[in-house]
């Protein structure tokens, strides 16, 4: 019974990890690719860890699996924010199909208030 559950959870986790990789390959710009890669570090790793905890089923195994989970949950949002911010500041182009960029609009407005003085982007 536990065996079947482990198998299902692992297949789901690996499936999401694979989808994340495909997304990173085929989505159009760095920001959308990042969205896909988040999938691997949430449901992907999450399912694999739950499966591993069920399979090991003892304190040492479960505690380590839980601490990996907690660690990934704490670090992955920080990592994706710093990459996104760095990419935006380095002016990596957004996909041409991007509908709206309100940060650019606000930056222009703020520069306008300072009347021609060029602020750092």
């Amino acid at each position: 019974m536990i065996d079947v559950l482990v198998a299902v959870v692992w297949l789901v986790g690996a499936g999401f990890a694979l989808l994340a990789a495909i997304g990173v390959l085929q989505l159009p710009d760095v920001f959308t690719r990042m969205q896909a890669s988040t999938k691997a570090s949430t449901l992907g790793i999450g399912c694999l860890l739950v499966g591993a905890a069920l399979q090991l089923a003892d304190v040492a195994g479960v505690v380590r699996a839980a601490s990996i989970g907690a660690f990934v949950l704490l670090t992955s949002p920080v990592a994706s924010h710093v990459i996104a911010r760095a990419a935006y500041i380095a002016e990596v182009p957004l996909w041409k199909g991007t509908k709206l960029d309100e940060r650019r609009r606000d930056a222009r407005r703020d520069r306008g208030e300072f009347d021609g003085v060029e602020s750092t982007p």
Binding site: T32, A36, K39, T42, L100, D101, E102
Partner: peptide, 21 residues
């Protein structure tokens, strides 16, 4: 996760990304 999985799998692009304040 399910929404993004669908976006990745559909060959014709259905996404409409944006930067929102």
């Amino acid at each position: 996760n399910i929404r993004v999985a669908r976006d990745v799998l559909t060959p014709s692009r259905t996404i409409s990304p944006a930067v929102v304040a």
